[in-house]
């Protein structure tokens, strides 16, 4: 197919991604159909010219931007599959091009970008062994994204970017504080925290039953769904007695949104008075090398503002 033709391909201007859902569900149905055929069929049925100055690619990129913004609203992970299904429809093969275009639009206009979440790590020995056995190619990317701010740090202040009003500014701020803290506790425990230990920490914070807006259990569930944390349940080996082993791990969203810097910022903030000795301890707890003083300064500010930006989105 000549590229010129492809360019001309129209996109239903007024159609929002919400409207498009039923149609896309249909598309899902014939996903086994030859992609080639699908493309040609759609070529015939649509022959309207896109708005001047807005090529079909621009239209698709716009849809992708809208999709990303509305996903981030509810902290729904933006998946490559979701983008293919809800945004690109039968033009799945143009993913790379549209994605790049959407990134430019996001950065230029909104001061944001899509960042890919890290691939899920194999956590247990068993999982690692299985991965070796299956001999499958390791996946290159996780195919999951979150929206992140690209604003220079001077603009990332609480006055400019308050916690989102969804569901309410207070709840949103509390939630961000709570998950950052839980993630910090997991991270400081070498990335794995037993359920009992977590509960003990939470009891000390008087957050074992309720976290201001909801039951702790529900909040933890939400953190799991939004991939801030991963809850792992290990059964005792067959034939042996024992309780279920529940442990908590740092989720991919937390790695990207909060990150090590966020954890360090949180710890410094909680300790208040800081000294080189504490810094050494913190670094050894997190199993990292110490940074120079200048880097640190940057890190603290960046981290605080990054969380705020994320809330804003």
């Amino acid at each position: 197919m000549p590229p010129s033709q492809r360019r001309r391909r129209p996109v239903e201007d007024e159609e929002s991604e919400e409207d498009a859902r039923p149609r896309q569900r249909r598309n899902q149905g014939d996903s086994d159909a030859e992609p080639e055929e699908e493309e040609e069929a759609s070529e015939d049925e649509m022959d309207v010219d896109a708005r001047p100055g807005q090529s079909a690619d621009d239209q698709l990129a716009k849809k992708l931007v809208r999709y990303a913004i509305s996903c981030e609203y509810s902290r729904t992970v933006i998946r490559r599959d979701g983008i293919r299904e809800r945004v690109l429809g039968n033009q799945g093969r143009s993913f790379k091009r549209i994605f790049a275009l959407a990134q430019i639009q996001l950065k230029d206009v909104w001061g944001m970008e899509l960042r890919e979440l890290p691939v899920k790590e194999k956590m247990t020995l068993q999982e690692k062994r299985q991965a070796m056995k299956s001999n499958s190619q390791p996946k290159l990317g996780s195919g999951a994204y979150i929206l992140s701010s690209t604003l220079p740090k001077a603009y990332r202040t609480a006055t400019i970017l308050p916690p989102s009003k969804t569901p309410s500014a207070d709840d949103e701020a509390t939630y961000a504080a709570f998950y950052t803290m839980v993630i910090s506790m997991i991270w400081l425990n070498s990335g794995e925290l037993s359920d009992q230990k977590l509960k003990r920490y939470l009891t000390r914070l008087n957050a074992d039953q309720n976290v201001s807006m909801d039951k702790t259990e529900i909040i933890l569930k939400r953190m799991e769904n939004q991939r801030y944390v991963i809850k792992k349940t290990d059964r005792p080996p067959v034939g042996q007695d024992g309780d279920l082993m529940i442990s908590w791990h740092v989720g991919p969203r937390a790695k990207e949104e909060v990150g090590l810097d966020g954890v360090m910022g949180m710890v410094r903030e909680v300790y208040g008075e800081w000294n080189p000795d504490l810094e050494k301890k913190l670094c050894s707890s997190l199993n990292i090398k110490e940074r120079t003083a200048e880097e640190e300064d940057e890190v603290v500010e960046e981290d605080v503002s990054r969380r705020q930006t994320m809330d804003a989105e």
Partner: peptide, 20 residues
């Protein structure tokens, strides 16, 4: 957007409205 008037400040303001 090749508009030279569109600055980081404009982006920050847009995000400020989006959040509120």
């Amino acid at each position: 957007m090749g508009d030279s008037r569109y600055t980081p400040g404009n982006r920050a303001f847009l995000q400020a409205i989006l959040a509120r």
